[in-house]
Design a protein around this nucleic acid. Sequence first.
DNA 1: CGCCAGATTGACGTCCTTCAACAATCGTGG
DNA 2: CCACGATTGTTGAAGGACGTCAATCTGGCG
Lengths: 248, 248
Amino acid sequence: MLKEKASIIPHECGDCPIRHRAVCARCESDELALLDQIKYYRSYESGQTLIWSGDPMDFVGSVVSGIATLTQTMEDGRTQMVGLLLPSDFVGRPGRSSAAYDVVAVTDMVMCCFRKKPFEEMMVRTPHIAQRLLEMTLDELDAAREWMLVLGRKTAREKIASLMAIIARRDATLNMNGTRGPLVFDLPLTREAMADYLGLTLETVSRQVSALKKDGVIELEGKRRVTVPDFNRLLEEAGDDSDGGMLI
Amino acid sequence: MLKEKASIIPHECGDCPIRHRAVCARCESDELALLDQIKYYRSYESGQTLIWSGDPMDFVGSVVSGIATLTQTMEDGRTQMVGLLLPSDFVGRPGRSSAAYDVVAVTDMVMCCFRKKPFEEMMVRTPHIAQRLLEMTLDELDAAREWMLVLGRKTAREKIASLMAIIARRDATLNMNGTRGPLVFDLPLTREAMADYLGLTLETVSRQVSALKKDGVIELEGKRRVTVPDFNRLLEEAGDDSDGGMLI
DNA sequence: CGCCAGATTGACGTCCTTCAACAATCGTGG
DNA sequence: CCACGATTGTTGAAGGACGTCAATCTGGCG
């Protein structure tokens, strides 16, 4: 892929693509104006580490475009992904001075950053920001707990199906696809990153992806483009209740 | 154990044992007075299910005393514990009408409950509550992510050691023990509950507990009382960096 | 005492990892 | 253009960690 330097990104908050989902979602226009004064954009290239675990964090921010991973590493090198950061997701923790996890870009990214101090001061004064951040944090906690079930109790095949279901579902909401007909999406993750997410080895991931393909649960174009002909079938394979398979 | 009916529990917020750690921790006395008007106490017996996943939730609240578990169950019966609720922990999610997990008492418990509607209204008007809830939720998210590493990447032996370390550490902070000398605590969980927490079978839990005992990492009095002669040794067995083993 | 839930221990099977070789894809440079 | 090296992915064989099934033990309580 040809990597052009990302041009300056002069977003007005008004037409920001994540305006209605990010931490600023509930802000009134006067509050937005205040945020505007302390915000700045940064772009990162695929593969770049935005933040190293343990390092001081002088900013927080929102993912505007692109995807990043949140990972934890043991001394002997074993790693576990503990979060997948998508557009509108929040990075960093107000009130904490150093980062708890590595944050790594898996695609080229743009972030909307706020210096931590001013942001924290603003949080105290504008409840709309704190309210939205609470809501988002509760959602993340639910997602983390759902993932605990996947990690603790599901088989390798079910883990792969679960991951596909999550990505498919998210892709459908982002792109406002209808709930009918086959779903098509690109895997944003390498086999190794999938393994780190699922608590497996990359070989097992590869084998189980091939198995799901052989059994017609998914179809592959190249290594990354996935088609799901029957979403409920995928949910069954994930061990999920397919009654709730309403997408969204 | 003889089960006496818990007597009525007429706490004044002022001398509530969780006053300084619960969701009300930052409230001023006038705010506390408001909370006082909408609060009520409930007690539960060991083994009782406080909340069934999917059921409507008309209250939220804080654990005053005792311990409960948060669990998720698949259709075929596999279960995964996704949280351990200790005194001062918050139960329920403002803004959500039905429960996402089963909540089960593992000891006799007392809860300080708030009807959901009034509590939600109060959250909007008193930022101190929302601030504290955000802080607590962020802590829970960190705990959940730490547990994802345990579930995804640690061996059975490391999982047991990790659980012991967490319980020992928490016990030390609750009881204000010094950081030196052997730690002694009671396991609040059965082998089966430990298995559900760790993503193992109860047989594997039993075997690994025995192995840690045989290797002198822990000592047992009966099935539940545990002594940890060397906490750093335990952290090593958990695969954790023992440099950070400062307790707390 | 005898029952029962919780816990331990053993034998055996299997799912996943480990180690290894190899294939596909892509970008780079001669 | 094609060779090449690097990266990513696939596939096979063998071993091990954990699960499953089952027998036995322990302690508490009627």
